[in-house]
Structures are given as structure tokens and as C-alpha cells.
Design a protein around this nucleic acid. Structure first.
Lengths: 195, 195, 195, 195
DNA sequence: GATGAATGAGAATTCATTCAT
DNA sequence: AATGAATGAATTCTCATTCAT
């Protein structure tokens, strides 16, 4: 007994994510995490002193992931963001299931809720900044570019929610038209400008 | 004449909803439901044969509620729908917490997931039909009116999600600008028409 | 499953006492209590919601026992009290092991400590009242009858402590001489009176 | 020259004593001892091969302490012994808490029990020898000087027990009257002699 | 209809102990 | 001499569920 260093904290976190998505929080047990990682429960407890701590670190990782992927798209255009959103979105979407599961967990855990809120905020900000690069001013009067950031982020999450819930959700079509929507909105502004 | 202390199935469902929102599925136990209703666990079992059955009936009720409130707004314009969405949306929103909690529960329960999916579908349809009344054709080329229905529904849910997660989310402002957005989009169509 | 009424709370408490004495608090588990009573752990938890609660009720019972046995000895003389103390005192004394175990548990549990403190206080009082009946005044100047009560109670407990710790403790001899001590002290007073 | 951070066995024993008193045997874990000493569990295991071994050495230390303090008081009179007993006796008495905790642990560990029994025996003997010096014969017929040794030791422990359990125990008063008691008893003997 | 006692499986967590380094 | 990773068994406690009354 006591084989040192057979597993890293990160391995455990990855197993944990899978467990969360596969069974929801209801069935999310540290025993399941341990089994999926091939270690004993004790080992999981050695690395994360409580279940909550594990979930917290999991949330943190996701928030950092979101941050990294978004800030890399520095040069990126909205189109790319949409593409990425689409790729993460399907009836069996791992990412969004995880996200929604954590959101619902956050309702009864202020720390989680706060972190997810911050993450959403950062996402909104980045979208807004991208729109600012794209547009000289808001294409629709009364709607600030900041709010456009919120709108796009909300739209993407809302679509994902629908896609997870409906087996027959037209992902391709919806995302294709989302692009038309973005283009239409953007061109609208140019039109106004040229008027 | 009225028998006191008679607990109806509906009373239990209302308590159950509260329990779900207050503690999430994790802490959602039949004992908690029983206590909130002032009855014993046995009584809960008398009315719902299993825990799953209770949740299922709870989901059903919510779906029916959605249906009723939407079909009443038959005459209603989009504006009214937005107003109603806003009223259900805040950092402590009971309704959306319940919805998201059930969605995440649905990830591991196909019956729940299916029912919620159907509900979303009906909502999309109703929105689409309202937009059809409002618009002669889609205000943006390449975006079908059906997809507009999806977009609006997704937008409302996505905004709610953000509002629940962020204490400082600007609900008033966002909804006000959402109205400008709808108006802008609608007038856009008229403009195109007049061109 | 679910045979109603096969066991009473009191049965469980008796088993618990035995477990406590047999294994000390260290090995005092509710599983052991359940097994000794022939029920499942769940049953124990149904009757006492926590381990602490069980111990608390156990302490209470012991305190009540002490009260009952002492108040019955209404007419009783000191001699009787000594006899009873002796009978409870041996290398394997169930009673004193239990008592000392609970005392040490009380060091980290204020409720237990308080209850035991109250019990000791009542015992002291009763002893004092008995001595008052026996003596017109304290047989030794500077020692109040109240303090005599404390002394006798302390003596009995201290002797019990020694008897539990030493296999070869001379119980018979010590208690016989304790009686001589009491008589000697009492007669001392009469002597003084007659002087 | 002094090596910093070097933990000696004795340091660990002192931490262990504190842990025992602070949390009782229930919460007495090697991890707690390690943390209090600022080392890891492994280190504790390096010094004591098992938990039992640690406790055993702890008991031994206490017995040696008792021996040392008593044999120093070689010249000492009873008065001094009482003074020392009083100083170790209060509602938060470290010493007696530790002692009682170990006694109760001893109920399920013969080695501990034996050592404590031996310690008590030695204490009784020393007290008896002191009384022999003080008295030419027992002041009360039928009570041997040996038993007086037992009585005084029991009395001191019994009083300590009460003092630990009762927040409002009159320590000062009781010890003052204990001295009167000793003096009274001793003078009694002289009186008898002079008769 | 409703209750309360009981169950058993499984949850989180703790802990003495081991061992390679 | 000391550490830290790992273990596995045990512990407290919870919960859906059953069933006689």
C-alpha cells in the first residue's frame, strides 16, 4: 500500500468532470471519481480535503479554460467565437452539461455561483470588445454595445440549452442563421453609415 | 365544512418546488418535502409512489404552467412576453432556478429531459407564431421566422441565466434595451419594405 | 423490512451503556450499539438523531438513576450509602467505568459536563442533609457540614477510581475502615458534646 | 550550534498531552499531534511506531512525573501535598483532565491501566509514610495508617473530579477546610494520647 | 388516508498505517 | 531523520423505500 505519485490532482479533476456529466451532481460521489481514476477514496480526500473543495477547483479550472480560450482569440472575429460555440453545442454536449450542472449547483453554493458569475462577466466583456472593433457604433439605436455583448453571450447559452434539451434541435441550421443574423446586423450598421 | 389538515397532492408539489429551489437536487429529499408540508414521509409516499414520480409530476406541472401562461397571451404582443420574462428574472428568481435545476436533473433522466424539450419547443412555436403576426417576412435575410422564435426564447433564457449568476446584473437596462432591439429589428423590416 | 416496534429506546440505551463500558468512547460506535440490540444502524439513528444525542440521553438516564436511588434512601443512614457505594465498586465496576468514561467525554462536551456536575451537586447536597440529621454540629471545627458532604462523595469516588485501577485493591478492608472512620468521626462529636 | 526544527520525542509527547486534553481520546489523532508539533504524520510514526506506543510513553512520562514530584517532597509535610493538589485542581485543570482521560482509556488497555494503578499505589505508599512520620498511631481506631494514605489520595482525586465537573465548585473553601480536617484529625490523636 | 418504525444501501469523511524517496 | 502520497477499513450519517397499523 502507498504507491507514491501514481496520480496527479489534474487527473482526478478530469475524472471528476466526466463523473459530473455522466451522473449529474445527484450521483456525483467521490467514490465514483476515485474509481474512474483507479485510486481509492482516501486518495481523492488526500488531494481535495472535501467534496466541495474538489467541485470548487473544478469550477476554477473551467473558468480559467474559458478565460484562456477567449483571450487567445485575441485577433479573432465574432465568426470564430460562434464557430467555437457551435462546436461545443449538441444534444450530448459535454461542455454545456457541465456548465449547467455547475450553475444549478451554484444556486446553493455562493462560491461557485460567484465564480461562474465572474466568468460570464468576463465573457461578456470580451464579446463587447470584439464588437467594438467590428462596429464603429451600435447598429441599433438604444442598444449599447455592452448590451450586445450580453445578448450574444446569452444567445449562445440559450441556444445550447435548447440543443441539450431537444434531440431534434436544428443545430446546423440555427448556427448558420446565427451567422446571417450577425452579418445582417453588422451590415445594417454600414448601411446606416453610408446613408 | 372544510376539512382541516388535509394535504393535497398539489400542496406537496408546491412544497417540493420550494425545496428544490432552496436546496437544489442534492438536498432534495422526500423528508424535506414532508417536513415543509407538515406531514410524514409516509404521506408523501402515499401520494407519489417514488421520488422520481414526484419530480416527474412537478415537471409536468411546470410545463402546463408554461403552456397556460403562453396561450393566454394569445392576443399578446412580444412586448408583453418580454415584460413577463423580465418579471421572472432576477438574482433570486424562483422560476429560473427551478427550471435550470430541472434541466440539469434532466441530463440523467430522459423523461424529464423530454418533457422539458417539448416545453421549449412549444414556447418556440408560440413565439414564432407571434412574430409571424407581427412581421410579413423576416427582417433579416437568411434568418427564418422560425429561427427568430428560437433566438428570442434562447435570449430570454440566456439573460435569465446571467441574471441569476451575477448579483450586479443590470436587469432593468438589459430588458429596456431588449425592447429597443425588438423594435429596431421590427422597424428594420418596415424600412426594407418601404425601400 | 420495517418491522414496527421491535425495540424501544430504552433497550437501545441499555445496549449503549454496555458498549460504552466494554470498549470505551474510543470504540463506542452506533454500529456496535445496533448490533448489540439486534437492529440496524438506521434504527438507532431513527431513535437518536445523532451519536451525541444518544450519549446525552444516556447521561440523563444515569443522572436520573442517581437521583432516584438517592432520594429513596430518605430514611437511610450513611451506613447504607456506604454499603451501596461499595457494591458498585470493584475492579470491573460497570457503574464507575461508565461514570469515568462519561466524565472524560464531558471534558469536550459542555452539555455532558454540566449534567454530571449537577448530578454531583445533588449527591453532595443529599449527603450533607443526611449528615445534618446525624450530627447536631460538625465534629471537626473549621469543617462545615456542607464540606463534609463534598468530602464523603469525593472519598467514595476516589476510592472507586483506585479500585478500578488496581486489581489488588483491598475493597473489603477499605470499606470496613471507611465505616470505622465514619463512626469514629461521629462519636467524636458526641464526645465533644458530653465534655 | 543548535539545530533548528529538530523535533524531539519529548516535543511530540508534550503536543500529544495537549491534544489529549483539548479533544479527549475521541479526537486524539496522530495527525493532530503532528500538526500541533508542525511536523508530518510520518514523523510521528518515525518516533513512535504506533499510536498505542505513543500513548504508552505518555502514560509513562506522567507516572515518572508523579514519582519525581512526590519523592522531592521527601521532607515535606502533608500540608505541602495538599497545597500542591490544590494548585493542580480547577475547572480547567490540565493535569486532572489528562489523568481522567487516561484512566478511561486504561479501561480498555491493560498496560495503561496497570501503569496508572502502580502510580496510584506508589502515591498511597508515600502518603502513608508521611502520615507515619506525623502520627505515632492512627487517630481513629479501626482505621490503619495505610488506609489513611488511601483515603487522602482518594479524597484529593475525588475533589479534583468535582472541581473539574462543577464550574462553581468552591476550591478555596474546600481546600481550606481540608487543612482543618487534617489538623483536626491529627490533634485528635494527640488528645487521645494525652488522655 | 396517513403514520411511524424500521431497513439497507450508500454517502462523506477520518484515520492509523505503510512505504518509496 | 523526515516527508508526502497512498491506502483501506471503519465511522457517522442520510435517504428512498417498505409495511403493519
Amino acid at each position: 500500500m502507498a504507491k507514491p505519485n501514481v496520480i496527479t490532482k489534474n487527473d482526478l479533476l478530469q475524472s471528476a468532470k466526466q463523473c459530473l456529466v455522466e451522473g449529474g451532481i445527484e450521483k456525483f460521489t467521490l467514490r465514483a471519481v476515485a474509481e474512474k481514476s483507479g485510486v481509492t477514496q482516501g486518495t481523492v480526500y488526500y488531494h481535495f480535503r472535501t467534496k466541495e473543495q474538489l467541485i470548487l477547483e473544478l469550477v476554477q479550472e473551467i473558468c480559467e479554460d474559458s478565460w484562456n480560450s477567449l483571450s487567445q482569440t485575441d485577433e479573432g472575429v465574432l465568426k470564430e467565437a460562434i464557430e467555437s460555440a457551435k462546436s461545443r453545442c449538441s444534444y450530448d454536449s459535454f461542455y454545456h452539461k457541465l456548465f449547467i450542472t455547475l450553475v444549478s449547483t451554484g444556486f446553493t453554493n455562493e462560491k461557485i455561483r460567484h465564480q461562474l458569475g465572474e466568468m460570464i462577466g468576463r465573457e461578456n466583456d470580451i464579446l463587447t470588445r470584439q464588437l467594438e472593433k467590428l462596429w464603429s457604433e451600435s447598429p441599433i439605436k438604444g442598444v449599447s454595445v455592452e448590451t450586445w455583448g450580453i445578448f450574444f453571450n446569452a444567445l449562445v447559452d440559450g441556444i445550447a440549452l435548447q440543443a441539450i434539451l431537444k434531440k431534434d434541435f436544428p443545430i446546423e441550421k440555427t448556427y448558420a442563421e446565427l451567422e446571417h443574423f450577425v452579418n445582417g446586423i453588422s451590415s445594417l450598421q454600414n448601411k446606416e453609415e453610408s446613408e
